[in-house]
Each structure stands twice: as structure tokens, then as C-alpha cells.
Design a protein around this nucleic acid. Structure first.
Lengths: 228, 228
DNA sequence: CGTTCCTTTGAAAAGCATCAAGAACCGTGG
DNA sequence: CCACGGTTCTTGATGCTTTTCAAAGGAACG
């Protein structure tokens, strides 16, 4: 299972920088995991003995609220890391659910712990991953939890478009998910998107795909370059 | 300067668990830093060659928005760690400003890096601190960025009261800061608090101190125990 | 081809922001 | 000790935004 060395996303992932020497320390399998859109990778409080690197797809990290609804606290994109808390706690801190069909590498905690001890390169990467997670969280809060519903939807669209390289089709989540990401209701999410469409800012190709006029969208969002 | 061993907040802080052996590795001074209410500990993008443990007081971590206003992304309470990003980036990621007179320990990055390499106990603590930071960030998002203004203010009051052990006086931030924490306007913050006061849920002793009826406040907040 | 789920839309009500002004508080200097 | 000016807090009135409740249209799927 050790194809990590030639992995396509490795340059983005946890195992960047690793030398051949480092790889020799990996004695447990790094499996590939596939989750279909809508499937749950893990639940909060599940026993955590591995962590994940996202190779392709899109994952939402959520918390359930007291009223039973869910709040999206962050999205993870290819190259991102999920479940780092496995290194310090016995259980996961979020629910991780696929917004798109996704492929991940499943890395046993024991592997990361060993490398963390014996490879300064991986050790540094682990810290960097934590840092990135915090930056992502802060970015999410400032961008997706601030301003009017229109601004937030515009920012979310721009965020989603970064993955899919702009002009072509971007994945558009369901309205309920959009609501849970932005802290607004499903109806408001729907209304804003329908409105963007009427104004010609946004075109939906299928139910779950769209493209947009990036510049106009930036105006609505309040121009700010993306830290994530 | 090595009074860490007998430090009152050490049990909460980064240097928990350290043995005498570990302390012998610390060859650079751990300074005490005092910041008065309203003072800035550091700015985002400041060169970061040290990190901090909060001994007493309260610190707000903020980002400036494009419009010049600021958004509070998190509060740090005694025992918490600030500026962990110094370990992986050359600069700080937030503005850190004192909401109350505060005392911190200023720990050079070189010290933490050395201990991180040579003390498994500190190494574990560093990871735990990162984890805690992410948990705090997620808690902040779900609690302070979700629900009506009344709910948010109620949750913030409960959060602030945890420090000051309930019944006695708790620190009440300025209305503008409250707004920046909850994503609402100064006026709305003021109105909600004035309203709580009229309903007898909350009593202000001085301008910056209050106490409250915790149970009623919990009802308004939607009961949920605090993860932070 | 009908069922089911998701999205869109409408109308009314509630919530919140905005603008503007007055009141309370703070530190300072007389 | 009190008066003063600046700041922060409170309050009111108004209008926009968002939620809520309800229902109808569309797309997906067996």
C-alpha cells in the first residue's frame, strides 16, 4: 500500500518532504478510502486511531446543535488533513461528511506518531497542519459568519470556485448545507442564489453545478484574498 | 526567571508534566509580561519569535475586516496559549489585545523547540494546545455565531462567568467588543443587555462588571455544556 | 408514472441595522 | 471637589433583512 512516494497530492499533503529514509519507517498500511457524496467518514466521538488526508473531493466538518440541526464549522479541500485530533485524543471532534465523492488516505496514528518522533520533516508538517486548521477555522468564521446573507453566499461561491479553477463548473451544495455553512435558513440560501441567477451573476448547469462571474461576485463579497 | 516549576497556573499551562530534567533544558529566560486593559500584546504579521501562556486576565484574538472593523475570533482565558503559530510561521496570525489587565509568560520559540525535541511530555502538550485551540475556535463559531442576538449574548455571558466562578462579579466587555464577538452591532448588544437587566436576568455592578441568574440565562442560551 | 425529496416562491411577522440624539460615565484640570 | 469634554452607553424611530409558515413547482428514482 505504500504508494505514498508517488502520490499525486503528496506535495500538498502530510507526507511532503519525506525522504526515502522516512518512508522506510512506515510499517503499517496507508489505505485508500472512498466515500460517496452524502456518506459519513466518521462521527464525532467515534474512536480515533487514524487520520486522513483528502486526495480529491470535498468534506464538511460539522457539529450538531442542541436543536438537532447541524452547523458546518469548516470545509476540507484536497490536500487538507482531517482528524488530527486522533494524535492527542481518543476520539474525533467533528462529524466528517462528504459533499462530493471523495478519496482519502487513511493513516494510522501509530505511523504518524513514529514518524513524528523520528522524522523532523514530518514533525514539522504535523505542526503546520494544526496551524493550517486553525487558520481555516478563523477564515471560515470571518468570511462565512460575517455580513449579510448575500455577502456570505457570494464568499462561499468564491471559496468553492477556488477548487475548480474558476470558470468551469463548480460544485454547488444543497441549500440546506449552504444554510448550515453560513448560519442562515435554507429558504434564505435559496432566495439569494435564485436572485444571483436572475441577475446573471451565477448560472446553474445542473442542480449541483454552477459557474459565475467572478469579478461581480467579488464585488458583492467585499474583495479579500483567500487565506485558505 | 525560572520560576515555572512553582507557577500557579502551570497545572493548566504548556509546562504541565515537565520533570526537573526537562526544566534543565530551558536555558533562555521565560519572562513575565503584563498588559493593561486595552493594550495590544501583538499585532497580526508581527515577527513571532515567542509564544505566550496566559496566567491571568482575558485576551481577545481578532482579525481586521476589509471595512476596518474588527472581528473577534476567540477569547483566551487563563491557562490558554497564544501565538502557537510562532512555531511554524515567522509571524503572528491575529491581533492579541487585553480585555482585562493580564499577566502572561513569554516563552521563546527556541525554548519550546528544544523541549519539543527532547521532552516527550512537552511535545505532547504542544499538540494538545493546538488541539485545544481548534476546539476553542469551533466552540466560538457554534456558540457565538449561531442563533439570535439574545441567544448569543446569553451564551457570551455564561462563557464569561465560567472564569469568575459564577455568582460574584464577572467582567463585562464594552458593547463594541461584544458586537465584534457576536457579529452584531453595538446598538443591538446594548439593547439586549439593557433588556436582560430590566428582566432581572443580569445586574451590572459597575460599567464593566456584572452578575446574573445563571439558570435563566442557560434557558435563553439553549442549554449546552461548555467544551472550552 | 407516481412518489419523494429538494428547491423555489409568497406573504406576514419578527429581528436587526441604521441614523440620530440624549444620558451616563470617566478622567482631567481648574 | 466640581465643572468640563470626550467617550461610551442607552434609547427611539424607521426601514431593510431575514425568518417563519405555507404551498407550489421540479428533479430524481424506483
Amino acid at each position: 500500500m505504500l504508494r505514498c512516494k508517488s502520490c499525486g497530492v503528496r506535495q500538498l499533503a502530510l507526507f511532503t518532504d519525506l525522504t526515502d529514509e522516512d518512508f522506510k519507517l512506515v510499517h503499517q498500511p496507508v489505505d485508500e478510502v472512498r466515500v460517496a457524496q452524502g456518506d459519513v467518514l466518521y462521527h464525532a466521538d467515534d474512536r480515533a486511531d487514524c487520520l486522513f488526508t483528502l486526495r480529491s473531493g470535498l468534506i464538511k466538518m460539522t457539529h450538531y446543535l442542541i436543536d438537532g440541526s447541524q452547523r458546518v464549522v469548516r470545509l476540507v479541500r484536497p490536500g487538507g488533513t482531517l482528524g488530527l485530533e486522533a494524535l492527542v485524543a481518543g476520539q474525533f471532534a467533528h462529524n466528517a461528511e462528504a459533499l462530493q465523492d471523495s478519496v482519502l488516505c487513511r493513516i494510522p496514528v501509530s505511523v504518524v506518531e513514529k514518524l513524528d518522533r523520528e522524522s523532523p520533516r514530518l514533525h514539522k508538517q504535523v505542526l503546520t497542519r494544526w496551524h493550517q486548521t486553525v487558520m481555516d477555522a478563523d477564515y471560515w468564521l470571518t468570511q462565512m459568519c460575517t455580513g449579510s446573507a448575500r455577502e456570505r453566499v457570494a464568499r462561499l461561491c468564491l471559496f468553492l470556485a477556488e477548487d475548480d479553477e474558476g470558470l468551469a463548473a463548480c460544485h454547488l451544495p444543497g441549500r440546506e448545507d449552504i444554510g448550515a455553512m453560513l448560519g442562515i435558513t435554507t429558504e434564505t440560501a435559496s432566495r439569494v442564489i435564485a436572485d444571483f441567477r436572475r441577475q446573471g451573476l451565477l448560472t446553474t448547469h445542473s442542480r449541483r453545478e454552477f459557474s459565475m462571474n467572478i469579478d461581480s461576485m467579488r464585488n458583492l463579497a467585499g474583495i479579500e484574498d483567500c487565506a485558505a
